[in-house]
Simulated assay, not measured.
Amino acid sequence: MSDSVSNRGLPLTTRGALVLAAFATALAFSIILPNLPSRIAAGSGFDDPATISRHTGLMTAAYTAAIFVSAPFLGRISDGWGRRPVLILGLAGFSTSLMLFELAGDLLLLYTARALAGVSAAAITPVALATVGDWSPDDGWRARRFAWIGAATMIGFMVGPLLGGTLSILSSKQAQLEAGAPLFWPIVLALVSACVIARTVPVSKRPSSSHANAYPPRSR
């Protein structure tokens, strides 16, 4: 790949995968929220609203705290290993956490799934932004791509509650096991993103003449 091509920034396919990864992360988080009290009640057997509310808050806090604690360490790891392996591990871990949440039958597994989701989320959107920053040819290019990732995150946060709320209404009439059904879509989106990232994100952290061939050939 010539320097003139590398100066155009990340290929469109790579940028799309990073945007999709950010969207899937936000979508999964916001889909779960409306159904979290019912999942806690089903998994723990609690029927006291105050107890369920307390665990709902603690479980949400576990997710946020996991991001807060792990994000700096994962950022340093991505500086050393490169962005691609951290992104792939983050997306794989996030998909695993959603599967675990869907299958969890007790309170401990629900907490474990949410904490794992938080750690994995810290390896996705922040590292996706760092990847864009590494390969930005100029400030304007970087700002526009940051905006796309931010917009994808906000759309995920807005769409998720709508889907999750609809599920919450339906789950009162159907089996409790159906409460995790919408998580299928964030799982698929995350895994698709991981596959594209594995093929298209450069191995090296930032471009230079010594690794000008880090990108795969770009199709027209």
Rank of each mutant, 00 (worst) to 15 (best):
C195Y: 12
I187M: 06
R218G: 09
R220A: 08
L191H: 12
R206Q: 15
R206Y: 08
V196T: 10
S204E: 13
R206W: 06
K205T: 11
Y215P: 08
A190P: 00
S210V: 04
R220E: 13
S208T: 13
F184C: 10
R199H: 01
F184E: 05
R220D: 13
A190Q: 05
S219E: 12
P216R: 07
V196Q: 05
Y215A: 07
S219W: 11
V192A: 04
A198F: 10
S209V: 15
R199N: 09
I187A: 05
A198M: 08
A190V: 03
P182Y: 00
A194P: 01
P217L: 03
W185I: 15
T200K: 04
R199K: 07
L189Q: 04
S210N: 13
V201R: 02
P182A: 04
T200L: 01
Y215I: 06
A194H: 06
K205N: 14
A181C: 08
Y215C: 06
S209Q: 15
A194F: 02
V203F: 14
R206M: 14
P217I: 07
A181Q: 03
N213G: 11
T200Y: 05
P217Q: 08
V188W: 12
P216H: 06
P217S: 06
T200C: 00
L189Y: 08
L189S: 02
C195K: 14
I187H: 02
Y215S: 01
P216M: 13
P186H: 00
A190T: 06
S208Q: 13
A198G: 11
A214E: 00
S204Y: 10
R220Y: 06
I187R: 01
N213Y: 12
W185K: 13
R220S: 11
S209I: 12
W185T: 14
P207F: 00
V201N: 01
V196M: 04
A212P: 11
K205Q: 09
I197N: 03
L189I: 09
A214G: 08
P216A: 14
L189K: 07
W185H: 12
P207Y: 07
S208C: 09
A198W: 10
V196A: 05
R220C: 01
R206S: 13
R220T: 11
A181L: 07
V192C: 03
V196G: 06
A181P: 04
S208E: 11
R206H: 12
S208V: 14
P182D: 03
L189P: 00
R206V: 06
V201P: 03
H211F: 15
A214Q: 06
A212C: 14
C195W: 12
H211N: 14
N213R: 14
P207G: 05
S204G: 09
V192N: 00
F184P: 04
F184K: 00
T200F: 03
F184L: 12
W185D: 14
A194K: 01
P207D: 04
K205A: 10
N213C: 08
N213Q: 11
I197Y: 02
L183N: 07
V192G: 07
T200M: 03
V188G: 15
R218N: 13
R199I: 09
V192H: 04
R218L: 10
V201D: 03
